[in-house]
C-alpha cells in the first residue's frame, strides 16, 4: 500500500516522484495522437501525456450533456472522486515503472507556504532545483527544465489552443508565479472549507455552498481565487489550460486536495457524499453510483472512491 508523503519533508518521495515522472514521460505504450482525436501528423503519446489528454477530455464532457456548467470532472460533486480516480491510476503507473508497490504520490501542503509573506512564496523549497524547478517560459531550472538541444529534457508535447482543441506541440514547460493570483491559500482558507457541514449542496455547481465547492475553489465569489483553483492560477503558465497535468506540480496540488478530503472524511463530523443515487437525472455523472468518465481503465463510481484504505494512506492528515 502506498504512503503519500509531504514532498518538502521526504527526500525519498521527491526523488521517486521526479524519477517516475520522467520515466513515464519517456514511455510510449503505443497509442497515438490519431487514436486520441488530436489533429496533425500521428505520433505516439507518452504514458504521462495520456493523463493530460484524459483530463482535458473529461473537462469537456458536460454532465449531463443537456447543460453546460458541470463537467465529468469539475464544477460539481464528482470533482473530488474523479481526481482521486485519476491519481490512483497514475500512482499505479508510478509503482510499475519504479518497481515499488509502496510508492505513494507526494503532496504539496500549499497552505504551509501560504502562511509566508506573498513575496516569499516563490522562494519555497518546492521550486528549488532539486524539486520542481522554478518559473519561466520555459522553465530552465530543476528536473523539468527545457533545453532545446537535449531530447531528454522535459517537453510539453500536447496542449490546447485558444479554441479549446488539443494539439501537438514541442516546447518547454511554462510557469508564471503570482501573475494571476497574488498569494497561495492559507490555513484559515482550508479550515473554512473543512468546517462545512455538507459535502455539497444544491444547485450542485460552482454556486453551491458545501465542502466540495469551497475546496474546488469557486466560493466565495468575492476577492481572489480560492484553494485548489488558486494554486493552479498562482503557478500559472501551463497550469492554466485544461492540459494542466503537463506540469508535474498538478499532481502535487491535487494530492493535497485529496488529502484535505481524506482529512474531512476521517473527522468525526464527516458528511456523506451527495447527491445520492436517487437524485434527479439532471445530476447524471455526479450521483454516488454514476459511472465516472474513464479513458485509461474501466470506469468507477464515486462510491468506489470513498474508501481508499486498500490503496494508500497519508503520512499526515493535519491540514
Amino acid at each position: 500500500m502506498g504512503v503519500r508523503r509531504n514532498i518538502l519533508t521526504s527526500s525519498q518521495a521527491r526523488t521517486q516522484y521526479v524519477e517516475g515522472a520522467r520515466t513515464l514521460k519517456a514511455e510510449f505504450l503505443g497509442p497515438t495522437t490519431s487514436d486520441l482525436a488530436i489533429g496533425g501528423p500521428a505520433r505516439q503519446v507518452s504514458t504521462w501525456d495520456l493523463f493530460v489528454v484524459w483530463h482535458h477530455i473529461a473537462m469537456n464532457r458536460f454532465t449531463p450533456p443537456s447543460q453546460s456548467d458541470r463537467n465529468a470532472a469539475h464544477r460539481g460533486p464528482v470533482f473530488l472522486p474523479w481526481h482521486r480516480f485519476m491519481m490512483l491510476l497514475l500512482e499505479l503507473q508510478f509503482q510499475r515503472v519504479l518497481g515499488d508497490r509502496d510508492f505513494g504520490l507526494p503532496y504539496w501542503d500549499w497552505a504551509a507556504d501560504g502562511e509566508r509573506a506573498p513575496g516569499q512564496q516563490p522562494g519555497s523549497a518546492l521550486w528549488g532545483p532539486d524539486a520542481m524547478g522554478g518559473q519561466g517560459s520555459p522553465v530552465t531550472t530543476g528536473p523539468f527544465a527545457f533545453d532545446a538541444a537535449r531530447p531528454d529534457s522535459w517537453r510539453v508535447l500536447i496542449d490546447v489552443d485558444v479554441q479549446n482543441r488539443l494539439r501537438s506541440v514541442d516546447r518547454g514547460l511554462r510557469r508564471s508565479f503570482a501573475t494571476s493570483a497574488s498569494a497561495l491559500p492559507r490555513r484559515s482558507d482550508v479550515q473554512r472549507a473543512t468546517g462545512q457541514t455538507a459535502y455539497d449542496e444544491s444547485p450542485w455547481s460552482t454556486t453551491s455552498g458545501g465542502f466540495r465547492n469551497l475546496l474546488e475553489g469557486w466560493q466565495p465569489v468575492a476577492g481572489a481565487p480560492h484553494l485548489h483553483n488558486r494554486v493552479h492560477v498562482w503557478i500559472g503558465g501551463d497550469m492554466l489550460p485544461s492540459s494542466s497535468p503537463n506540469d508535474p506540480a498538478f499532481y502535487l496540488n491535487h494530492c493535497n486536495v485529496d488529502r484535505i478530503w481524506a482529512a474531512k472524511q476521517a473527522s468525526a463530523a464527516s458528511p456523506p457524499y451527495v447527491p445520492t443515487a436517487g437524485a434527479s437525472a439532471a445530476l447524471l455523472g455526479h450521483r454516488i453510483d454514476d459511472q465516472m468518465y474513464a479513458l485509461l481503465s474501466s470506469s468507477l463510481t464515486p462510491r468506489q472512491m470513498l474508501d481508499v484504505s486498500r490503496w494508500y494512506t497519508y503520512d499526515s492528515l493535519a491540514v
Binding site: 470532472a73 503570482a178 494571476s180 497574488s182 460552482t206 481565487p225 485548489h228 483553483n229 492560477v233 485544461s242
Partner: peptide, 12 residues
C-alpha cells in the same frame, strides 16, 4: 504580484 482584476478562479 499584480492582482488587479484577480479573476475568480477554478480548475481541474
Amino acid at each position: 504580484g499584480d492582482d488587479s482584476g484577480d479573476p475568480h478562479a477554478g480548475h481541474g
